[in-house]
């Protein structure tokens, strides 16, 4: 038996699980009694603690030698703490499901216009979720076959087709947007066209007669497009991402220390 926080078995395990659940509910109840004046402070405290762990683990000096080399006293807890965040995040799915099922369920129940589509949607949720979970427990070929039809006949091709439809949109967008109306549009067009030519074999043939050595190699279209990617695109991307990085750091600080303001944060609780 030993200590409190050791794995249990059998009936004792279930007693502990139910006990822990009940205690958890008790804590929830106690929290719900928090007076209004303390609520924001409580939330700020939990936010701070949630961040403190990861920040300390990163900043705290690590041992340079010995069994704890490259680690500090918090490193061992990274795994369980991350597990907790993952699991809690998974519990949020029900919120979205509730929104979806209530909208479409109501449409079906009240026979609203086009309720048939809502029925298809609700049916498809079950047709996918049930076999996908069932096949984890029952290895019979019928279930695998049904899942295959739903997955490879429905979900996967729908996914891939919706993604590939971007190819059509990219053509109409390029056709419309790449007009030399301003200097900027001209630059955008020029660099896009050079990259496009440099990318395909047909384009590369245009300059394939130029010797790919020394000075003349600079004029081959694939080298030109590579030059744009590495020498113009790279530093521009680097500069953008440094800006975004500092912006992210600033926002993280505001969130962590509960300094953030805006729609969600200014509400009365």
């Amino acid at each position: 038996m030993g200590g409190f926080f050791v794995p249990k078995q059998g009936a004792e395990l279930w007693a502990y699980i139910i006990g822990a659940f009940v205690v958890g509910l008790g804590i929830l109840y106690a929290l719900s009694l928090t007076p209004k004046s303390l609520r924001k402070t409580l939330i700020a405290g939990i936010t701070f603690l949630g961040g403190l762990f990861f920040a300390l683990e990163f900043f705290w000096p690590v041992d340079t030698a010995g069994p704890m080399a490259g680690k500090n006293f918090l490193t061992a807890y990274i795994k369980p703490v991350s597990s907790v965040t993952t699991i809690l995040g998974a519990f949020a799915l029900g919120l979205g499901l509730y929104s979806m099922v209530s909208i479409h369920g109501r449409a079906v129940a009240k026979r609203r216009e086009n309720w048939g589509f809502s029925a298809v949607l609700l049916g498809a949720i079950l047709a996918m979720a049930i076999p996908a979970i069932w096949k984890e427990y029952d290895k019979s070929p019928q279930i695998a076959g049904f899942y295959r039809i739903m997955y490879d006949g429905g979900f996967n091709p729908l996914n891939a087709t919706m993604f590939s439809i971007v190819a059509f949109y990219i053509v109409s967008a390029a056709y419309r947007a790449f007009r030399i109306r301003t200097v900027e549009a001209g630059i955008l067009l020029m660099s896009a066209v050079i990259i496009m030519i440099g990318q395909v074999t047909l384009g590369q043939l245009l300059t394939a007669w130029i010797p790919n050595e020394n000075f003349s190699s600079n004029f081959r279209v694939e080298n030109l497009s590579n030059w744009i990617l590495t020498r113009v695109n790279s530093p521009a991307q680097l500069a953008i991402s440094l800006g975004i990085g500092v912006g992210t750091l600033a926002t993280a600080l505001r969130l962590w220390l509960s300094l953030e303001r805006g729609a969600f944060f200014d509400e009365e609780l």
């Binding site: 499901l97 809502s118 498809a124 949720i125 996908a132 739903m150 996914n159 919706m162």
Partner: peptide, 13 residues
């Protein structure tokens, strides 16, 4: 609608 349903089912599973 089929896609939305299948995708949601897939997310659940």
């Amino acid at each position: 609608h089929l896609f939305l349903g299948l995708a949601t089912g897939y997310t659940i599973s």
